[in-house]
Amino acid sequence: MTSDPRPVVAFLSHSAALSGAELLVSRVTAACTRLTPVVVLGEHGPLEEVLAGAGVHCEVLPLDASVRDHSVGTTTGTVGNVRSTVRTTSALAELLRAMGTRVVYTHSAKAHVYGGLAGRLVGIPVVAHVHDIVGASGSSRANAALLHTALRLLPRTVIANSRTTARSLGRLRRPAAVIGCPTAVPATTPPRTSDPFTLGMVGRLTPWKGQDVVLRAFAAARSAGLDPSARLRLIGAPLFGDDALFERELGVLAAELRIADVVDFRGHSSDVEAEMAACDVVVHASTRPEPFGQVVVEAMALGRPVIAADAGGPAEVITDGEDGLLVPPGDVDALASAMVRLATDREARGRLAENGRRSVTRYELAHVVGQIEDVLLAAAR
Results as ranks from 00 to 15, higher is better:
G42R: 03
L23H: 05
L250C: 02
V158D: 07
T183H: 04
A285V: 13
L325G: 02
F240W: 13
K110E: 10
R156S: 11
P228A: 02
R351F: 13
H367C: 10
P228K: 01
S229P: 00
T165E: 04
E290C: 08
D271A: 07
G115R: 03
V297P: 06
D69H: 11
V134G: 01
L232I: 01
A260R: 08
I235H: 00
V56S: 11
P207W: 06
D331R: 08
A221H: 00
A10H: 01
V297N: 04
Y105W: 09
P155K: 07
A353R: 10
H129C: 09
P191Q: 10
E43K: 05
V25C: 02
G267Q: 11
T74G: 15
R167E: 11
S229Y: 01
H107D: 10
A348F: 04
V127W: 03
T36L: 05
L239C: 12
S19R: 13
E249Q: 13
T2P: 10
I372A: 07
T29M: 00
K110I: 08
G116P: 03
S286C: 07
L302Q: 05
T88D: 04
I259E: 02
E316A: 13
L147Q: 11
V327F: 10
T78N: 11
P207L: 07
R163G: 09
R216Q: 06
S13F: 02
V272L: 11
S359D: 07
A17C: 03
E316N: 12
S270F: 14
N161T: 12
R288A: 14
G170T: 04
S229F: 01
V56K: 09
A224P: 00
L325M: 14
G42E: 08
L232D: 00
L92I: 03
V375F: 04
A255E: 14
A177M: 12
Y105V: 02
L365I: 06
S84F: 07
S137G: 14
L95Y: 04
S108N: 07
L342A: 10
G73S: 12
H284W: 07
E48I: 14
L146D: 09
A230Y: 00
T74P: 14
L41H: 01
L41P: 02
L51I: 09
H148Q: 08
A187Y: 09
R258P: 03
M339A: 03
N81I: 02
R171C: 11
A315I: 13
A315T: 14
L154M: 07
L342H: 07
D64G: 12
A255R: 15
A338S: 08
E43S: 09
R163W: 01
R258E: 15
E247I: 06
V263P: 00
L117F: 06
A221G: 00
E49K: 12
F246G: 02
V263N: 00
E22V: 08
R87C: 10
A255N: 13
S140T: 10
A177N: 09
S71Y: 13
T149I: 12
R357Q: 12
D227Q: 01
A278C: 08
T75W: 11
S269C: 07
A217V: 02
R204F: 05
R83V: 15
A338V: 04
V38A: 08
L365G: 02
